[in-house]
Design a protein around this nucleic acid. Structure first.
Ligand SMILES: [Zn+2]
Ligand SMILES: [Zn+2]
Ligand SMILES: [Zn+2]
Ligand SMILES: [Zn+2]
Lengths: 144, 144
DNA sequence: TGCTAAGTTGATATCGATTCTCATGTTCAC
DNA sequence: GTGAACATGAGAATCGATATCAACTTAGCA
């Protein structure tokens, strides 16, 4: 997905939610796009003149519109990334020491196995799964 | 795992952390054992005379001692369950509507596939995984 | 059984990430 | 251009969770 295309999709999704794609929102989306990993609010604000309250509000709006996904861990701050259908399906490596979150892509065989299991669980429990979430919790490279 | 055995293990773990297995802590462990699904603090307090501050403190102590596991979702309250090695390895069905969390056990083939993938990811990224976490997010049976 | 150190309790105060408020600024539609 | 609707940003408010601290229990020893 190239940048221009991304912004068009975000525009469409915001419109559908009765909202506008303002420069502040675009700045947030671009920062998330450039980061390549989920960012906290302080990360998003760093070196920017964006007010904190606007960052919180706009990330919430973008999440409601389906353009951004919020990741909550046991760390102090939540993290945000572009919605999966704007990037690609992936999972997370969560460092229990420093709190950083990295992306990783699971082997196709595992994804197939997952989809099959999701189906089985739906059948047997009556739970309607919207998506699966797989995290590996441990220690990241830079925390040794 | 039968109750008596469980309490012995909890006692041991608390001792190792320099703490005691008091009646209040035991009451919490028994409630978690009886529930069979992760409970919020209000759930734990319901119909009990346990003060809120003690519940928070003791659940934190039990978590540090490795007897209890804390689950954080996007719902208002965190949830607590007995540590996996006191029950059995399992995963969670998270209702995005009402916030409840149910346990489910993944098919052995999936767990094998997972372990293999975890190993591969560790090799390729340098991340040291302590455990994996698989959640299905969707709508529970009672939320239709 | 007393004694003391260490741990625990519970009411309350405090914290801090996030959300809410509202007056002002901006944008879109007609 | 005008008005309605939406967005902004500074600050206040919210609220789950944590810290505080004096009073209470317990464990271990003499
Ligand atoms: Zn780390
Ligand atoms: Zn997947
Ligand atoms: Zn539900
Ligand atoms: Zn598993």
């Amino acid at each position: 997905m190239v940048g221009a295309e991304l912004h068009e999709i975000v525009t469409t999704r915001l419109r559908a939610a009765g909202q506008r794609y303002t420069p502040g929102r675009r700045a947030i989306v671009e920062r998330l796009l450039g980061a390549g990993q989920p960012l906290t609010i302080p990360d998003v604000l760093e070196g920017s003149s964006l007010p904190q309250s606007s960052a919180y509000r706009n990330l919430a709006v973008l999440e409601q519109a389906g353009a951004v996904h919020r990741i909550v861990t046991s760390a102090d701050f939540a993290r945000y990334e572009l919605a999966e259908d704007l990037t690609e399906h992936h999972h997370h490596l969560i460092c229990s020491n420093c709190g950083t979150v990295e992306d990783f892509t699971a082997p196709p065989a595992l994804e197939r196995s997952l989809h099959k299991a999701v189906h089985e669980v739906e059948e047997s429990t009556g739970f309607a799964a919207e998506h699966h979430r797989l995290d590996l919790v441990g220690t990241c490279k830079s925390c040794v």
